[in-house]
Write a protein that binds this DNA or RNA. Structure first.
Length: 424
RNA sequence: GGAGAGAUGGGUGAGUGGCUUAAACCAGCAGUUUGCUAAACUGCCGUAUGGGUAACUGUACCGGGGGUUCGAAUCCCCCUCUCUCCGCCA
């Protein structure tokens, strides 16, 4: 949610920047400005009456005490008239505020100056790439065949237990999964992130705080009996730690990370591009979250990008980093880097991380603020998050890229965690 | 799940309808004093929103939402959460 101050003070700038996201904001912005003027006018009028009422009430108290009954009764009558008038202001004020909020939430976040205009994923900018695509042997297979061959991940069993998209990891498959989680957490700790183990179900307030509710309700699993939602990402609980919190400026940036399972209903298409581990209802992920000072949040974003890139380098996977164009960047993000690894048997790039600066867009909803020493006013923090990393596609890439006729070779950095060096 | 007791500022905690402009203490910040520390003293010490260049000032907020009243932290109703005891339980 954009702040009303920004819209009020720089309406032209807001419209111009949203144009980069192919969003025509002119009509909405104009409507917002009108509603905002009306809202302030109404509040002034209502407050003015309230002020008079407060004074009058005190006077009535004194009159009663002094036994001036008639004067008190007369004053009560004028109170009634004033309250009636105030009610019409208050009713219109509430309606105006409601309408104003409904308009403001329609506006996406402003894209950062470095975001290129563009319509689709084809317009994303490749920032850099690294690693080398392996040359596979002649009967190399995609991961959905490999997992059967080595009996490490079982989709059919998942269907029996739950349904499609809930795989069962077995033996070395389960151990590889656990090794990756531990590797990511240990690397995160070295980079200064505090490990959090959050609830993986959240209440409605948390869903609203990070923006999953009300619009994306259908993407989350909902436990209706208790009105809890299964988290689609650890971003939800970990960022909501800072909902309604005022931090001291010296505490920033705050670096937290969490490993959690993630649950997504993904009511989307199914087909070849979502086969195997490419898209699931339940998957594991290590998420990094920062709460940053607005003055240096982009330095923090670069720090996060370097961290995620370091993980891919250490795993030895071929990767590329994309800066998303205006058309592909999410509603809430100001700047997003996507990380993709090349999965050699599928001959496809798979997204394994999306690392973003939301600036104050999310913080405004969360009411996550800070105060610098000496400042009177609180300011909104900037929030950032990124996957570091999402497991299934990393597993898919490891299986496909490191396959040999003798088995799948485990990356060097994982062997202290797996305690085996080949899946065969 | 049952019974009872509670929810007040960063913390402790007073406040049963107007004398509260939420006391007091602690913590914190600034200053005075001091060779330094400590102590003492003085002042400041919440959030949101409206008006104002600003100083300043109006309004709201005592878990959340309604209600009674000229006037509510205080009385009434609903909800949420916490604590104690009992039951159940990894």
């Amino acid at each position: 949610m954009l702040t009303i101050n920004l819209i009020r003070e720089n309406p032209e700038f807001v419209i111009e920047r949203l144009g980069v996201k192919n969003f025509d904001a002119a009509a909405i912005v104009n409507n917002i400005l009108t509603l905002d003027r009306r809202r302030r006018e109404l509040q002034s009028q209502s407050d003015g009456i309230q002020s008079e009422l407060n004074t009058l009430s005190k006077q009535i108290g004194l009159m009663m005490k002094n036994g001036e009954k008639d004067a008190a009764e007369k004053a009560k009558e004028s109170v009634a008239t004033m309250k009636e008038q105030q009610k019409s202001y208050i009713d219109e004020l509430a309606a105006t505020e409601e309408e104003l909020k409904n308009e403001i939430v329609k506006l996406p976040n402003l894209p950062h100056a470095s975001v290129a205009p563009g319509k689709t994923a084809d317009d994303n900018v490749i920032v850099r790439s690294g690693g080398t695509v392996p040359v596979l042997h002649s009967d190399a297979a995609p991961h959905w065949d490999l997992i059967k061959k080595y009996d490490i991940i079982d989709f059919d069993l998942g269907i029996k237990l739950t349904g499609a998209g809930f795989p069962v990891y077995k033996g070395k498959g389960a151990k590889l999964q656990r090794a990756l989680v531990n590797f990511f957490l240990d690397e995160g700790e070295k980079a200064g992130y505090r490990e959090i183990e959050p609830p993986i179900m959240v209440n409605k307030d948390s869903g609203f705080g990070t923006g999953q509710l009300p619009d994306k309700e259908g993407q989350m699993y909902h436990a209706t009996l208790d009105d809890f939602y299964m988290i689609p990402t650890a971003e939800v609980p970990v960022t909501n730690i800072y909902r309604d919190v005022i931090l001291d400026g010296s505490e920033l940036p705050v670096r937290n990370m969490a490993y959690t399972p993630c649950f997504r209903r993904e009511a989307g298409s199914w087909g070849a591009h979502v086969r195997g581990l490419n898209r699931l209802h339940q998957f594991d992920k290590v998420e990094i979250v920062q709460i940053a000072h607005p003055d240096n949040s982009y330095e923090q974003l670069e720090e996060m990008v370097k961290h995620v890139e370091g993980l891919l380098v250490k795993l030895g996977l071929p990767y590329r980093i994309l800066r998303l164009c205006g058309g592909d960047i999410s509603f809430t993000s100001a700047l997003t880097y996507d990380f993709e690894v090349f999965s050699a048997a599928q001959q496809r790039w798979l997204e394994v991380s999306s690392t973003s600066n939301f600036e104050a867009f999310q913080a405004n909803r969360l009411k996550c603020r800070f105060k610098d020493k000496g400042d009177k006013q609180t300011r909104l923090c900037h929030t950032l998050n990124g996957s570091a990393l999402a497991l299934p596609r990393i597993v898919a890439a490891i299986l496909e890229n490191f396959q040999t006729p003798d088995g799948i070779i485990i990356p060097e950095v994982l062997r202290q965690y797996t305690r085996f060096d080949i899946i065969d």
